[in-house]
Simulated scan of single mutants.
Amino acid sequence: MAGSVKEVGSQEWEKDVLGSKGLMMVDFWAPWCGPCRSVAPIVEELSVEYAGKVQFVKLNTDDNQDIAVRYQVMGIPTLMFFKDGQIVDKVVGAQSKKNFKDKIDTLLAS
């Protein structure tokens, strides 16, 4: 089953991320980043497991530096969690799938 991680950029940011309702995980990444490549399949799996409950998007920091600067992304991968367009949490660095699931479950329960 295919995941539903949507690629967004500066043009779509306001509407697709800040204008969204519910919980969203945003993966700040870059093609040259090894840890980003290890996190990507986990994010895909989570997008299938949490389909209908959580939205998943990814933003290439090389192509969208304005957004990375605005949110003070200093290292990648950085995964930010937005609820109704507001940042509610973030994780910097590669993590296990279990850690991401625990974070998502906690945020969904709050």
Rank of each mutant, 00 (worst) to 15 (best):
M1A: 15
M1H: 14
M1G: 14
A2R: 14
A2N: 12
A2F: 09
A2K: 14
G3K: 01
G3N: 03
S4Y: 09
E7H: 09
V8L: 02
G9S: 06
G9Y: 03
G9N: 09
S10R: 11
S10P: 07
S10K: 13
E12S: 15
W13K: 03
D16L: 11
V17Q: 01
L18H: 08
L18W: 10
G19Q: 01
S20I: 00
S20L: 07
K21A: 04
G22I: 10
G22V: 08
M24N: 06
V26E: 00
F28T: 10
F28R: 09
F28I: 03
W29H: 13
A30I: 01
P31E: 13
P31I: 08
W32H: 07
C33L: 07
C33Y: 09
C33A: 07
C33H: 06
G34I: 08
G34D: 09
P35C: 07
P35K: 12
R37V: 10
S38E: 13
A40S: 11
I42W: 07
E44I: 13
E44Q: 10
E44G: 07
E45N: 15
L46H: 01
S47G: 05
V48Q: 13
V48M: 13
E49K: 13
Y50A: 04
A51D: 12
A51Y: 04
A51S: 14
Q55H: 14
L59P: 04
L59I: 11
L59T: 05
N60D: 15
N60S: 02
T61C: 10
D62L: 11
D62G: 11
D63L: 15
N64S: 05
N64E: 00
Q65A: 14
D66A: 15
I67K: 00
I67Y: 01
I67W: 01
I67P: 03
I67V: 13
I67G: 01
A68Y: 06
V69M: 14
V69W: 04
R70D: 13
R70H: 12
Y71I: 10
Y71P: 01
Q72R: 14
V73C: 06
V73K: 05
M74T: 12
M74V: 07
M74G: 14
G75W: 06
G75F: 14
G75L: 14
G75E: 13
I76P: 13
P77G: 05
T78H: 03
T78K: 02
M80S: 02
F81R: 00
F82L: 07
D84R: 00
G85S: 09
G85Y: 12
Q86C: 04
I87M: 13
I87S: 10
I87V: 15
V88S: 01
K90M: 12
K90A: 11
V91C: 04
V92H: 10
G93S: 03
A94R: 05
A94L: 11
A94E: 15
A94Q: 12
A94W: 06
S96E: 03
K97S: 08
K98M: 14
N99C: 05
K101D: 02
K101V: 10
K101N: 06
D102G: 04
K103T: 05
K103V: 00
K103C: 01
I104R: 01
T106L: 14
T106Y: 10
L108K: 04
A109Q: 05
A109G: 08
S110C: 07
S110K: 08
